[in-house]
């Protein structure tokens, strides 16, 4: 049974302990929303789950694979605060590289993903010329391409318009109906099904 198991995690930033002895489990199909005030450690938690930083203690496993292992890292897709786009590359190249990094060997079409988010005509537009919302959309298009089971989305709704929010919610729902997991942080109320909330 592929479950994401977070065991006894604690995290400290500077002199402040953000959380400690945090444990939870997540089964396929579930969506976890991490809520909490500014500075309560939402992003830090996602970074630990993504394998960017190790926590002070505790461990995270998916299918018995710990963070940092090749199997775990190919199972996650992480979207942070930063857009992860290079201004000198156009959308298609950016998306291509981003999904390649994530381990996209399936040859799924990046073109289709861009069409899905309504940026078909921006394929050869440099990322430098995109608006904040469009940049967000390009990165979110990677969700159509990635094979990762666990989506870790840090404030995914920021800068998106109403349409964008709706289609992202649909995308997350479909992903979870197909047995995926999603962990996201947001300050907005969300109407996602199967939603659990973890307050930090």
């Amino acid at each position: 049974m592929s479950r994401l198991i977070v065991n006894d995690l604690s995290c400290q930033r500077g002199y402040n302990e953000l959380f400690d002895n945090l444990s939870f489990e997540l089964s396929p199909g579930e969506i976890l929303r991490i809520s909490g005030a500014n500075g309560s450690g939402k992003t830090s938690l996602l970074k630990i789950l993504a394998g960017i930083s190790p926590g002070e203690s505790g461990n995270v496993t998916f299918n018995n694979n710990p963070t940092g292992s090749i199997a775990y890292q190919s199972d996650i897709f992480y979207l942070g605060h930063l857009p992860a786009l290079s201004p000198e590359l156009h959308c298609k190249e950016n998306l291509d590289y981003l999904t390649q990094l994530n381990g996209n060997n399936t040859g799924r079409l990046v073109d289709d993903a861009l069409a899905n988010i309504g940026l078909k005509n921006y394929k050869y537009e440099y990322a430098a010329n995109l608006s904040a919302g469009q940049k967000r959309r390009v990165v979110l298009a990677a969700l159509f391409v990635t094979q990762a089971k666990i989506w870790l989305l840090d404030e995914p709704f920021t800068a998106l318009d109403a349409d964008g929010i709706k289609s992202l919610e649909n995308q997350i729902t479909t992903h979870c109906e197909n047995g995926g997991l999603c962990i996201l942080t947001t300050h907005q109320d969300s109407k996602l099904p199967n939603l659990r909330t973890l307050a930090l």
Binding site: A50, G51, I52, I70, A71, Q73, S74, I76, Y78, G80, H81, L82, P83, A84, L85, S86, P87, Y97, L98, L101, N102, G103
Partner: peptide, 17 residues
């Protein structure tokens, strides 16, 4: 520097490769 600033470096670090 640039890859760090725009977050691509982060994606490289968490990549399975």
């Amino acid at each position: 520097h640039y890859d760090y600033d725009n977050g691509v470096l982060e994606q490289m670090v968490i990549s399975p490769y």
